[in-house]
Simulated assay, not measured.
Amino acid sequence: MIKVSVMYPNGPETTFDVDYYKNSHLPMIAAAVGDALKGIELNIGLGGRIPGELAPYVAIAHLTFDSVASFQSSFGPHAATFAEDIPNYTNVVGELQISEIV
């Protein structure tokens, strides 16, 4: 099992529409990749290491798949569509990491 994490860096100029991301963007991804997607989780940053500090990431989405191949074959054909939607919810580029769940 693998986890694909998309982490959106936070900063004083960062904008992020949580409602749009949660109710439009993530459902669009789920519908497009279908049964290959085994789970999805959204975390919204509340703070950093020091009280009052911004969270390093404004949001992190975690998507689980059976394998890297499953992720690539289901997500890849729709990647351009997903990327085109980014300006609808944020002004930053997310960092993507693929991890093995152990």
Rank of each mutant, 00 (worst) to 15 (best):
Met1Pro: 09
Ile2Cys: 04
Ile2Ala: 04
Ile2Ser: 04
Lys3Ser: 12
Lys3Ala: 14
Val4Thr: 05
Val4Phe: 04
Ser5Gln: 05
Pro9Lys: 05
Glu13Ala: 02
Glu13Gln: 01
Thr14Gln: 12
Thr15Ser: 14
Thr15Lys: 15
Phe16Gly: 08
Asp17Phe: 03
Val18Phe: 03
Val18Lys: 06
Asp19Cys: 07
Asp19Phe: 05
Tyr21Cys: 11
Asn23Gln: 08
Ser24Gln: 14
Ser24Val: 15
Leu26Trp: 02
Pro27Trp: 01
Met28Tyr: 13
Ile29Leu: 11
Ile29Trp: 04
Ala30Trp: 02
Ala31Val: 08
Ala32Thr: 02
Val33Leu: 03
Gly34Asn: 11
Asp35Met: 09
Asp35Leu: 08
Lys38Phe: 12
Ile40Asp: 02
Leu42Val: 00
Leu42Gly: 00
Gly45Tyr: 04
Leu46Pro: 00
Ile50Leu: 13
Pro51His: 10
Pro51Met: 06
Gly52Tyr: 09
Gly52Ser: 08
Glu53Leu: 05
Leu54His: 06
Ala55Gly: 08
Ala61Lys: 10
His62Gly: 10
Val68Leu: 14
Val68Cys: 10
Ala69Gln: 13
Ala69His: 08
Ala69Pro: 05
Ala69Met: 10
Ala69Ile: 06
Phe71Ala: 03
Ser73Thr: 13
Ser73Tyr: 06
Ser73Trp: 06
Gly76Arg: 00
His78Lys: 07
His78Phe: 04
Ala80Cys: 05
Thr81Trp: 09
Thr90Gln: 09
Thr90Val: 05
Thr90Lys: 09
Asn91Lys: 07
Val93Gly: 08
Val93Cys: 10
Gly94Arg: 10
Leu96Met: 14
Ser99Trp: 11
Ile101Asn: 12
Ile101Pro: 07
Val102His: 11
